[in-house]
């Protein structure tokens, strides 16, 4: 309905200006949205900040009945599962990136594989949660029985496995693209010097593409930190500091999703919002840290 008149009827200069203004507005809109989210979290977490102070950050007990709200179990749970997932997923996503970016760049199999990896990113997280619950949990339980651990099946390890699978496509697709972009003359130069293909990958491609690969890893980490549904279904939702690899735990996103709907009492509700704020801050910190790492890595590579 709209658009036809102005674009076709108006002078090109006007439509250019309108277009540019539109772009400006949408760019500013993103910033405004981010600021609004941050301010909202800040305002609504104020009662908890006032009431709990710094104890919120290092408190190990989450007891809404007794009015104790310590976020440490959730912060540690989130970091533990996310980094473990990152560790598990990295070899796989790196292998996929190298294979698709260097060894199998064209042809129907390559494009099939590529869309399959991208498809992994499109599966709703609740489906991952279900799959984890019905497939991974029994597997992990039988592993736990063999190892003599408490056979819960759910817990930090299961959650990290599910997360690892979920984040593979994020680092893999970016990794593939940057590996694909490594200039052919660099690779040919190495080959001319007598390097094998594996040596080219190790000595030329990986150093060249390092910052891009790291960017993908950080994207994946950001995704893992905020993931809610799939994790909460398999982590065991125990509001305690994780005791070990197999112990049940909970994450920041998980506790918000679980408890927000029925939270009554202003400090309790506001403590949940403060966890949201913390998640926001941790996410931003990881992002900034990541950017620095990428910058340094690209300087080294250059």
């Amino acid at each position: 309905m709209w658009g036809t008149g102005t674009v076709r009827g108006g002078a090109p200069a006007t439509s250019e200006a309108v277009f540019e203004r539109l772009l400006h507005i949408s760019g500013a809109g993103i910033l405004a949205l981010l600021a609004v989210v941050f301010v909202t979290l800040l305002v609504h977490s104020f009662p908890a900040v006032k009431d709990l102070g710094a104890a919120f950050l290092y408190g190990r007990v989450w007891d809404p009945v007794g009015g104790e709200h310590g976020a440490l179990p959730f912060v540690l749970g989130t970091l533990f599962t996310s980094f473990l997932a990152l560790g598990i997923s990295m070899p796989f996503s790196l292998a996929i990136s190298i294979y698709l970016g260097e060894y199998c760049t064209e042809g129907p199999f390559s494009s099939f594989l590529r869309s399959a990896v991208d498809l992994l990113a499109g599966i709703p997280s609740v489906i991952y949660g279900f799959w984890g619950l019905f497939v991974l949990v029994p597997l992990v339980r039988s592993l736990q029985i063999k190892l003599g651990a408490m056979p819960y099946g759910v817990g930090v390890f299961t959650a990290s496995l599910v997360l690892a699978i979920m984040i593979v496509p994020y680092s893999a697709s970016l990794g593939r693209e940057v590996i694909h972009l490594v200039p052919a003359d660099q690779k040919e130069a190495a080959l001319a010097l007598g390097a094998t293909r594996a040596e080219v990958v190790r000595k030329v491609i990986l150093p060249y593409a390092r910052s891009g690969i790291l960017a993908g890893v950080l994207l994946a980490l950001g995704r893992a930190l905020g993931e809610t549904m799939a994790v909460t279904m398999v982590i065991g939702n125990s509001n305690v500091v994780p005791q070990g690899l197999f112990s049940p735990a909970n994450t920041m996103a998980g506790v918000i999703a679980n408890e927000f709907a029925e939270a009554t009492g202003s400090v309790y509700l506001s403590a949940l919002v403060e966890i949201g704020l913390l998640l926001f801050v941790v996410g931003t910190a990881v992002n900034i840290l990541g950017r620095r790492v990428i910058k340094r890595a690209s300087v080294e590579a250059a």
């Binding site: 809404p64 009945v65 104790e68 759910v154 065991g236 939702n237």
Partner: peptide, 17 residues
Amino acid sequence: TVGAGKVVNWPCGLGAK
């Protein structure tokens, strides 16, 4: 040690939604 509430500080076990 625990008390009554819609969410309580469970001494043990696994939580499910």
